[in-house]
């Protein structure tokens, strides 16, 4: 809008040279997702602080409880790397998408991110079955309770993130994926991926 077509444009308005449009910090979808992620971050902060308090007040030698199975350090270390790769691939897909690259260059890393993320969840599930079989259950000890609580909460978020990635894939295949939607989903998946190493360090190490 030029000054001629807007004779009433006042001088006091900050940035008066700009057209009178609604200014957005970031797209609404991304802002909403970032707020949601902040909530989830505090949720996990609550779980981790609770875990840390109970762990630090346990009598010497009682943590982890004797007679309970140990958590699979090495295997989970590998799956951690798998999950990190998944996050990187999702970003590669976003980069191709935002540069309006050919469909295949968006889809391929996206599907790879999906597969790696799904394999992370599947390996976790298999490990859970093994641990439950060896006697580490939610009821057996607070150690087990916290393990399933924290890792399970993360797994639920991972499943939600995978569903969102799959939705992006379908929308993109149909040619109807809005950049703001993809950005919001990417933010969610980045949160899931970036949170995991912290949880691994606190719960497993």
């Amino acid at each position: 809008m030029t000054a001629i077509s807007a004779p009433m444009m006042p001088l006091e308005v900050k940035g008066g040279a700009e057209p009178p449009a609604r200014r957005q910090l970031v797209s609404s979808a991304t802002l909403g997702m970032l707020i949601f992620i902040a909530v989830e971050l505090m949720f996990f902060a609550g779980l981790i602080s609770a875990f840390t308090i109970v762990k630090s007040t346990a009598p010497p030698g009682a943590w982890p409880p004797p007679g309970q199975p140990r958590l699979p350090l090495e295997l989970t270390g590998i799956t951690t790397l798998v999950l990190l790769c998944s996050g990187a691939l999702a970003w590669l897909s976003w980069r191709a998408f935002s540069r309006r690259a050919a469909t295949a260059r968006v889809t391929r890393p996206l599907v790879a991110a999906l597969v790696l993320g799904a394999s992370f969840v599947v390996v976790q599930g298999v490990e859970w079955l093994r641990l439950v079989g060896e006697g580490l259950t939610m009821r057996a000890s607070t150690y087990g309770s916290f393990f399933y609580m924290i890792v399970g909460a993360h797994a639920l978020h991972a499943l939600a993130g995978l569903a969102a990635l799959a939705w992006c894939w379908r929308r993109h295949a149909a040619g109807r994926l809005a950049p703001s939607s993809f950005a919001a989903v990417l933010a969610l998946w980045t949160f899931v991926v970036a949170l995991w190493p912290a949880l691994y360090a606190v719960v497993y190490l």
């Binding site: 707020i35 909530v39 971050l41 505090m42 949720f43 609550g46 609770a50």
Partner: peptide, 14 residues
Amino acid sequence: FMVSVGPLVAGAAM
């Protein structure tokens, strides 16, 4: 509300 409610939701689940 958003920043404070997360830990309580964690506590409520527990």
